[in-house]
Every structure is written in structure tokens, then in C-alpha cells.
């Protein structure tokens, strides 16, 4: 069955069609949420909440965009709402703990932890989310604006400012490392 047929059946209330749609899009959704939350556990939790919301709102899906894009729109708004309502803005210590876990995870698989990821994680959600959507998933500023209920100009400036902050952070990190290397060599 193709995705369009599954959506039609799901709209009619077919549970199996819904389940197949979710199963097909689950890895994509969770991986997107990992990138914006930087926390695999929170990502899985949010993915389930997103799917529950999707069952409720399937009547509103007009089929103009891809189902996966619609899912990440719901997930993004759910994540922003939760952060706003529960004031889940984590303290720097908690954030650092999450990064350390991710870093350990990557290094245990012989992958190098990228400083840009730390810098990305330190950004506010309002900047991090558009950067991920634009530069990883390739959505246009207009599409991101529609997803986040923002104007395309606002999205563009947030992406630009976010990248500038990351660049500054990387520069700072580079300078600190070279200073440390200089101190070691002078000893």
C-alpha cells in the first residue's frame, strides 16, 4: 500500500493503516527529535506523544506536504509547547550531563564528538530548530515559517544569528585549545 492510500484509510479510521504509517515514519521522527532535543530518551517520549496527537488531528491533514513533514511539524510545536508550559529549560549542569552522555555514546562507537554539536546544543530552541530544519533537512525558509508559525524573514534571521553564534563558539573553543597547547609546549 502506498502512503497516500494509507492516509486515506487512516482518515476513515483504519487502525492498521495508522500503525503502518507510524511504523514507516518512526525512525525519521525519532532521529529528528534527537537532533532538536539532543536527548534520545526525551525524543522517544515525544515521538509517542506526537503520534497520539496525529491520531487526533488526522482529519486536518490536507496532503499538500509529505506525511513525514506534517509529523515533524506536530512534533516541533509539541516540543516548543512543552518547554513553554513546563518550563523545562534545563539548567546548564543538566544540559552538560545530556551532552556528556551523547558524547560518550558517540565515542563508544569510535565516532568523534563534533564541537559544532555542543555549540548547537547550547543554542536556544528558537534558533536550533530552524538551523536543523534548514541545513540538515533542506526545508525552505517559507516551509519552516509555516511549520513554526513564523514569517520567513524571522526564520532567516534566526538561522543566520544561530550560525553566527555557533561560529563564535567554535572560534572561542579553537582559541582555548591553541592556548592550552601553547602552555603545554612552553613547559
Amino acid at each position: 500500500m502506498e502512503e497516500k492510500d494509507l492516509i486515506v484509510s487512516a482518515k476513515r479510521g483504519d487502525q492498521l493503516a495508522f500503525a503502518m504509517l507510524f511504523k514507516n515514519n518512526y525512525p525519521f521522527l525519532v532521529k529528528y527529535l534527537i537532533k532538536i532535543t539532543m536527548n534520545p530518551d526525551a525524543a522517544e517520549e515525544l515521538a509517542q506523544e506526537t503520534m497520539a496527537k496525529c491520531v487526533e488531528k488526522i482529519g486536518l491533514f490536507n496532503g499538500k506536504s509529505k506525511f513525514s513533514s506534517w509529523l515533524i511539524t506536530i512534533a516541533t510545536n509539541l516540543y516548543i509547547d512543552q518547554k513553554r508550559k513546563l518550563k523545562r529549560e534545563k539548567s546548564w549542569k543538566a544540559q552538560e550531563e545530556v551532552f556528556r552522555r551523547m558524547q560518550w555514546h558517540l565515542e563508544s562507537r569510535n565516532e568523534e564528538w563534533n564541537d559544532a554539536l555542543s555549540a548547537l546544543g547550547k543554542l536556544k530552541d528558537e534558533m536550533r530548530i530552524p538551523i536543523v530544519l534548514k541545513h540538515y533537512y533542506g526545508y525552505s525558509y517559507e516551509e519552516i515559517g509555516k511549520m513554526m508559525n513564523l514569517s520567513s524573514g524571522t526564520v532567516k534571521s534566526r538561522v543566520h544569528n544561530g550560525i553566527m553564534s555557533i561560529r563564535e563558539e567554535l572560534k572561542l573553543h579553537g582559541e582555548q585549545e591553541s592556548a592550552a597547547a601553547g602552555t603545554r609546549s612552553s613547559r
Binding site: Q15, M20, K23, K31, M51, H105, D115, V132
Partner: peptide, 28 residues
């Protein structure tokens, strides 16, 4: 650098997809 970092996350963090029954239960 951001793209490379995100690509590493994409490829490295394993995502376990539950079976169809799990999703059917969730919908029900």
C-alpha cells in the same frame, strides 16, 4: 561542521522501531 555533526548523530544513535502491534495498540 553542523551538517557533519548532525550526520554523525543520524548514523550513530541507534533507533529501535517497535513492531506493528505496538503502533496498533497506541492508536487504539
Amino acid at each position: 561542521e553542523i551538517e557533519d555533526g548532525l550526520e554523525t548523530l543520524e548514523e550513530t544513535i541507534p533507533v529501535y522501531t517497535p513492531d506493528l502491534q505496538f503502533f496498533e495498540n497506541l492508536v487504539a
